[in-house]
Nucleic acid binder design. Sequence first.
DNA 1: TAATATTACGTATTACGTAAAGATT
DNA 2: AATCTTTACGTAATACGTAATATTA
Lengths: 132, 132
Amino acid sequence: MEIHQLRYFVAVAEEGNFSRAAEKVRVAQPSLSQQIQKLEAELGQPLFDRLPRTVLLTDAGKRFQEFAQRILAGVADAQRCVDECKGEAVGRLVLGAIPTIAPYLLPRLLQQFQHKHPKVSIEVIEDVTENL
Amino acid sequence: MEIHQLRYFVAVAEEGNFSRAAEKVRVAQPSLSQQIQKLEAELGQPLFDRLPRTVLLTDAGKRFQEFAQRILAGVADAQRCVDECKGEAVGRLVLGAIPTIAPYLLPRLLQQFQHKHPKVSIEVIEDVTENL
DNA sequence: TAATATTACGTATTACGTAAAGATT
DNA sequence: AATCTTTACGTAATACGTAATATTA
């Protein structure tokens, strides 16, 4: 069982149609068909009844759908969760800069940086020799 | 993000050691290392601090671990869920058998079958000609 | 030197797309 | 004929293992 298979499965379940599901998940329709078959083989039973007009979930498929959706939601949550950590730098930044240029470039850059990393304290040293 | 990557990640998080984790999930250690790197790349940040003696979860890694475990638990649940559907055959089974042999083989087989498929009603016909 | 993680690289698996076939209306 | 799914098959992506290379104690 793989995550992309779960995406395909949910798409077919929602669309009731392999072709439209394939467009939705942006994959060739036979490829999607293969992945669904593979998933069904691994689970040991069919997830869909392939009827002439539409594709319906089997009982097992209905059950499975809820789990699949919860898993995919979990994946999305996990993504978002670590994204929140991303810019969360903390600490202290000491920055050396050439006195002549500093006032012209730094203000905007530092403002952007502070916005992204509010927990970092910044100190700018224009004349480095003072600290030698 | 793939399910096997989550398994690898959880193993490393639990073992605090790539080598032992690799044994646990039965994969070569460099392969596991690669998959972790790939996962970290996709998430946009490291999940582990590679320290000399051990491997520790980063803040993002700690957060991610909970989600990963929930996802894997969901996968296991999904498997179990559809397994429950498996033997749930319902309906009626009419079985023809050679009269001489039937009494010797069928009782045990039918008992097993009924145990697995309690919702199937069974009829045994020993003399098929009666039904022609 | 021992223990551990990463990089390099060739191989085997596999997901994919295109084309053809099957099935149903 | 038209619509939809599956089968067939070659290609491309990739997960894997082995071997070599850091890195640290």
